[in-house]
Design a protein around this nucleic acid. Structure first.
Lengths: 338, 338
DNA sequence: ATATGCTTGTAAAAGCGTTTACTAAATCTG
DNA sequence: CAGATTTAGTAAACGCTTTTACAAGCATAT
């Protein structure tokens, strides 16, 4: 039916409807109202030829691509995968395409994508970092409007931001542990210098502050990975005095910790309580099911896309989405009280 | 430095190097060799102006986008997320952008993407289905070259394909269970009508065929999901006679099964052995660590991109990538022999 | 009769890199 | 030295849509 392999062009429609290409374009885009009869001729031609504007020509003239970029450390990581799913869904609802890029923490990858955005390859960028910034990223971000930051901050970047309420999460975890009777708590944090690490710790401290004999007696900082969880588990068990509960900064850390504890004969929650953060992994399927602070992943994706398509505000908004504690079976009274 | 907000254009470079835009284009694309002196003038201008071709203009004239599309059911699913990571990495190495789309099994989404490819929005499509095809997808695929199929087949689609060796996987699982002494085995498959389901079952049968008293005494078919795993677990425990081992078609199924077994007081592997498939989830962190057939996810991604960028062959290749059994702690002798 | 305004459009330019076809000059060949 | 070939480029067309600026025709108001 269609004469050309790639579908009809606007001028085919124009010819079929016996109007000019400009008329078709303007009518279709609503910048020209036409009498019923003419409009119907165009509509019919569009349907008959199954016309769709060539996106490349459109992007060239419009200078935008109806596409956003998602830059994150690693799509295979369940937390980022969930985030990506939420963002993809939100972008799709907004009629936006999504191009994906994993940095795998290779330096320069993030900057490369900012550059791509500056050159209008994409209309906007959703950025997920998980390493401290030496100022490079901040400068690049501030020099190039159109990016937004989610999940983790780049200090000093003046861009819209969407984070979960890390401090509240830390507080919730701390209060929960406290209520169960724990006084000696381990904080297994993310990397030093990351907002999430700092804030979760601050929230934990706030919770503990009200109880004089409660304290963080052990802490560690490192990547939010499985391997780090395993490493930390060993170190924690080797130390003295041993805490009775752990607040870990990610699902992955918990997943890494658990087998080490089990191996060492430390039972959860009888000998050691544990609270995770993120709650996107199958924490409910572990033995015991692990309690965790749940991040509102879908909402973060939703808001990220909304902010990207919204008119820029000054100063750019920084949204804090609530977290909540999901109680399962990994917290009990400390052994001394049992 | 750059006079325009979006970077230098080819004519800026041409002006700076005192040649024509055509000369710059052809020199940069290797279709014109120039004397050292002229070439250096252009190189210098390119560096000084930090020139990069406008991708939209490039795509318009070239009719291709240096971008491929990845269409999969759900990026939040760990298996697909791993696959996406592998494909993203391979695409990146090949200098290709990746646009992501999750179908969430909405009908029509897949067709929509094939249509987009036909209109040159993307240069190629990597397709991951997980539902039986009624012929619609086959027809669309065959009518539009440039897509490839991975992980799951669309019967009759004449396109390059990359699958793991499901049959071998089923065989490996069956042989392993047999070797441990099991004779009464449950097959927890994916949906009926899916290649993976069929082939894994066939491999299992082949393994059992050599042993007269060994048989699949229970089977189920359903989505490769957690919820299905839980459902099936309950059904399986309610039936009589009870098998001594389960071969489940995905990590998710295992993850759904496990808590149901535990709840029912059925110990793994003492009372029930279990072998999974995929091995991308944290199977090694479960209690007990679960043995599984490991899919070569990275290799699948790698080959998919390679096939997409290769010159089309006739007939299109169908690659089968080897799987292997990863033995952990979820298989033991059946209780009757213990 | 002239001015004003609306309706119904259209022509042409803009957006930018690539390719085709071609020229002018230099070098080589016989 | 005539003619062939190579070298070193260039002008113009191409891809397709959108936008700007404008025009013809008609009705209404002054």
């Amino acid at each position: 039916m269609a004469s050309r392999p790639n579908g009809a062009r606007i001028r085919d429609v124009a010819a079929a409807a016996e109007v000019s290409p400009a008329a078709v374009s303007r009518y279709l885009n609503g910048s020209l109202t036409l009498p019923r009869e003419t409009a119907e001729r165009i509509d019919r031609a569009v349907r008959r030829l199954d016309y769709r504007p060539n996106p490349h020509a459109r992007r060239l003239i419009l200078g935008r691509s109806e596409t956003i970029g998602l830059v994150l450390p690693d799509i295979a990581n369940p937390f980022f995968a969930r985030l990506a799913a939420a963002i993809e869904a939100a972008a799709d609802r907004a009629g936006l395409g999504l191009v994906l890029s994993a940095t795998l923490n290779r330096p320069g990858r993030e900057l490369e994508y900012i550059e791509r955005m500056r050159r209008n390859h994409v209309d906007g960028l959703i950025f997920v970092t998980n390493h401290p910034d030496d100022g490079t990223l901040r400068r690049a971000l501030n020099a190039t409007p159109g990016a937004i930051l989610i999940d983790e901050d780049v200090p000093g970047a003046i861009v819209p931001k969407v984070f979960c309420d890390n401090e509240e999460g830390g507080f919730l975890a701390g209060r929960h542990l406290l209520a169960a009777g724990h006084r000696h708590i381990a904080f297994v944090g993310g990397p030093r210098g990351l907002m999430s690490t700092h804030e979760r710790r601050a929230g934990l401290d706030r919770a503990l502050a009200a109880t004089p004999d409660a304290a963080v007696i052990w802490e560690s900082f490192g990547p939010y990975t499985l391997a780090e969880g395993a490493r930390v588990g060993a170190a924690l068990l080797a130390g003295q005095p041993r805490p009775s509960a752990i607040f870990a900064g990610s699902d992955e850390l918990v997943l890494g910790l658990l087998p080490v504890l089990r191996e060492a004969g430390v039972r959860v929650p009888d000998d050691m309580s544990i609270v995770g953060f993120d709650d996107v992994g199958p924490l409910h399927l572990l033995d015991p099911p692990v309690s965790a602070i749940r991040q509102p992943v879908d909402a973060i994706g939703e808001r990220a896309v909304a902010l990207l398509t919204a008119v820029p505000a000054d100063p750019p908004p920084c949204e804090r989405l609530s977290v909540r504690l999901v109680e399962r079976g990994s917290v009990a009274a400390p052994p001394c009280l049992a």
